[in-house]
Design a protein around this nucleic acid. Sequence first.
DNA 1: TTATCATATCGCAATATTACGATATATATT
DNA 2: AATATATATCGTAATATTGCGATATGATAA
Lengths: 109, 109
Amino acid sequence: MGITRTEIYSAEHNKLGSMLKILGHPARIAILQYIIDQKTCICNDLVEELGLAQATISQHLKELKNIGVIQGTIEGKSVCYCIDEKIWKEFQKQFNLFFDQDVCARKCC
Amino acid sequence: MGITRTEIYSAEHNKLGSMLKILGHPARIAILQYIIDQKTCICNDLVEELGLAQATISQHLKELKNIGVIQGTIEGKSVCYCIDEKIWKEFQKQFNLFFDQDVCARKCC
DNA sequence: TTATCATATCGCAATATTACGATATATATT
DNA sequence: AATATATATCGTAATATTGCGATATGATAA
């Protein structure tokens, strides 16, 4: 136990689930918001901005990179992060495909 | 460590984060999809449908209830679950408010 | 009342996540 | 070359999550 039984779910549900899971942390939402606000890439302003340790920020950035919503390019001695617009919009689309379904109950509730 | 430092984030980010976190599990997505498909309420068809133990399904249902996306009403000896349309749409709206932001990078990437 | 369903809760083991200090790596500056 | 700066990775402690068997609860049926 303790391990999610991904083998019993559809690929779509696993994919959507893992994307939502990664977004489901306030630090990662705050990081995304900061990147969006600054428009341009940022580096370790995040450490000061959020008040988390540098190692922790780096770890969150890695997870966001893993699902593809951000990308980082090396800029001199720092790294420039920005939103990957394509993945961002694709994810939003998938989310809305799920949420646009008719959720009206028939019998009870 | 090990505990998410919610005190350093805005209420909005914490709220959005916890909603996304709960949705970020394939079992809970599969449960929601099943409720949507059946339109009417269901009970422990989910145990057969998903192949998870009854205790596990019950726990996932509880978490979905906690964030308000589903509600359960007692129907004789079983419980009728359905989507709470109001919360559902409200959450979709909050999600899209976040994702509709202009994510275009200025300088690099 | 007793038996039988349906669901919830408890307790626990396995595993995952979060956070951080320490250290590694890689580039820029002196 | 030596130093400084920015970021990544490692190792680890604290905590959270997942899943399940066992048991409790609560309603219906016999």
